[in-house]
Design a protein around this nucleic acid. Structure first.
Length: 584
RNA sequence: GCGGCCGUAGCUCAGUUGGAUAGAGCAUCAGGCUUCGAACCUGAGGGUCGGGGGUUCGAAUCCCUCCGGCCGCGCCA
């Protein structure tokens, strides 16, 4: 609908007299929805923006533009207002036509071709498989899934990926932790390493290790812990846990350690996958970090850097000259001990994404990763990729409260609320909705007691209720013996003359614009706020007017209107991963 | 110290390519069901957009500065 006005303005500019026609590309020109209905439906600041270049007063230029506007049956009136705004008043027929597009479009109403089929990868969650997902991961999952849906609706070719950090020290700590639990099952007693993973979720995995390996991995505690450096607080916990890992490897051999490692990895990953699946979050691929090294992708990336002459040797390590590409310091890619850094696999991973053909790489990361953006972008640029292909969205933390009391969480200690627990307590719909209610840049306070004790305070029900109410009216219609004549409804939309009806129609017509805006700004919460407005308009209309009236033309027109409303609520909730119930 | 984000009504937050009189929910107060579902609606009160300066026709929005809060700044992952 907005395109209509934009096109009219463009045509008018082209038809202006030579000396007034804008030269070059003017910025800041916009056709926008008006905030105040007395200013019409759309307004443009074009005259204000071009006045200086045209050497005319804004209002005079506006006058000339209005004179050049082509006539259009869907625009009832155009006026010049304020310092030089041009306001457009749409004819009722414009909104009636849009309602028909809603009905005809059905589930695909609101989809656009904006993205032009460009390939975009959204990588999100990517939590280390060292334990179950907690409430913070839930926010990443809900945000990433909704954003991916929005980009899809806006015409992008979307690919959803989970990056599995299945290499590195954290996983070795996990494997060692599982093995220690396994030893405990054989009656061995010892103080658990302070830096080990102590969560109860490791015990079933240890039990499984017994099923698979029997006693073959058993060692007496005295042997395992003989001559190790002291643990914290007397010693250093990192030094200690590394020593434990080394001891495990030497006692078990590579194959034995790998058995514990792989069992823990696959078990936890399967749990994460199930959890996300139940949460309505699906991925097109689960990409293994280990496969990067195994497949030579890291060497490929490093070779590219070396060939481009952006690495150097210092202190026995190999450094990437990141400062030449906007980063604040150079970064090590190969350590003195010959082991490649996490940063090396990271840039290799992002290069790999580009080589798989993705135009845009959207990463959803925790806000503590902000320092990492500059260096990954630097790496991409140094390898010949455009720096702006990377788009990182940072998620602020979720703080969990229980009755106003802050809940302390730590994966290592095993004291945390899992996503599964949260979903069980508040339900998937409320969780998905609440997670994207706020901008990703805002800290999210999630009070479990509030969300569980009075769940109908959650705004998700307000929107779902609008959907259920329409369904209820349609049920009532049949029970009262009214037959809805769709053709008559479509032909009678000019009977929708009430202010409530026009307000609802106007809000409905904004939906396609909201989808595009939310996709481009990576802002699912914009859709949430829109749906609440739509529900507000609907509930107000519901309370003010009877839909199932005796006048068949009015009744069918109103039923057409609320069916369209239901369609948009349904489409919008679907993008958010929230159900649209017919009754509740 | 350097860098990033945040600061808007009592509370939680929208408003970010600069637009017209700064909005919503909750809370508070006053009303509305014999009529399609009251998980709803109508109305009221509530603001120095953290402070100060600047840019211009116009600033919550852009720039500078100060204050306050969170987070980063490893040859960890």
């Amino acid at each position: 609908m907005k395109y209509l006005i934009e096109k009219l303005v463009q045509d008018a500019l082209g038809a202006l007299p030579e000396e007034l026609r804008p030269t070059g590309s003017a910025t800041g020109i916009a056709v926008e929805r008006t905030r105040d209905p007395t200013h019409g439906d759309f307004a443009t600041n074009v005259a204000l923006q071009l006045a200086k270049a045209a050497k005319r007063k804004p209002r005079d230029l506006a006058q000339a533009i209005v004179a050049a506007l082509p006539a259009n049956a869907l625009v009832s009136r155009v006026e010049i207002a304020g310092p030089g705004f041009i306001n457009f008043f749409l004819a009722p027929a414009a909104y009636q036509a849009e309602l028909l597009r809603v009905i005809d479009g059905g589930r695909s109403y609101g989809r656009s071709l904006l993205g032009g089929g460009r390939k975009v990868m959204v990588e999100f969650v990517s939590a280390n498989p060292t334990g179950p997902l907690h409430v913070g991961h839930g926010r990443h999952a809900a945000f990433g899934a909704s954003l991916a849906n929005l980009l899809d609706a806006a015409g992008f070719d979307v690919f959803r990926e989970y990056y599995i950090n299945d290499a590195g020290r954290q996983m070795e700590i996990l494997a060692a932790s599982v093995w220690l639990r396994y030893l405990e099952s054989f009656g061995e007693q010892f103080p658990f390493p302070s830096n080990g993973y102590r969560g109860d979720y490791l015990r079933p995995i240890a039990d499984k290790l017994i099923e698979r390996a029997g006693r073959s991995l058993h060692q007496p505690a005295g042997v395992v812990f003989a001559d190790l450096p002291p643990d914290a607080p007397a010693g250093d916990q990192d030094t200690y846990i590394d020593a434990v890992i080394e001891r495990a490897k030497s006692l078990l051999g590579a194959a034995g350690f790998r058995q514990a490692f792989d069992l823990a990895l696959t078990d936890i990953l399967a749990d994460i996958r199930d959890d996300l699946e139940e949460f309505g979050v699906r991925f097109d691929s689960w990409f293994s970090e280990r496969s990067l090294e195994d497949g030579g992708a890291i060497d490929h990336a490093l070779d590219l850097l070396r060939r481009n002459g952006v690495v150097y040797q210092k202190d026995g390590a190999e450094w990437f000259r990141a400062t030449d590409f906007g980063d604040e310091k150079d970064r090590v890619v190969v350590r003195e001990n010959g082991i490649k850094t996490y940063f090396a696999s990271d840039i290799a991973y992002h290069l790999n994404k580009r080589e798989r053909g993705f135009d845009q790489l959207v990463d959803v990361l925790g806000s503590d990763h902000h320092g990492y953006i500059a260096r990954v972008r630097a790496g991409l640029v140094a390898m010949g990729q455009p720096g702006d292909c990377l788009d990182v969205r940072l998620m602020q933390f979720v703080t969990l409260y229980r009755g106003g009391e802050k809940v302390q969480m730590s994966t290592r200690s095993g004291e945390f609320i899992t996503l599964r627990t949260l979903r069980g307590e508040v339900g998937n719909d409320a969780a998905r909705f609440f997670y994207v209610l706020r901008s990703n840049e805002q800290h999210l306070d999630f009070d479990l007691q509030l969300a569980t004790s009075r769940s109908n305070e959650n705004p998700v029900y307000y929107i779902q209720y609008a959907h259920a109410r329409v369904c209820s009216v349609l049920r009532q219609m049949r029970e009262k013996g009214f037959e809805h004549d769709e053709t008559r409804g479509r032909a009678s939309l000019d009977r929708l003359v009430e202010p409530h009806e026009q307000a609802l129609l106007a809000t409905m017509s904004r939906y396609p614009e909201v989808i595009e805006l939310a996709a481009l700004q990576r802002a699912p919460h914009a859709l949430v706020h829109y749906l609440r407005e739509l529900a507000t308009d609907f509930h107000a209309y519901y309370n003010a007017h009877q839909f199932l009236v005796d006048d068949a033309a009015v009744r069918d027109a109103r039923v057409t209107l609320i069916r369209g409303t239901r369609q948009i609520v349904c489409n919008g909730l679907c993008l958010l991963g929230v159900s649209a119930p017919e009754a509740m």
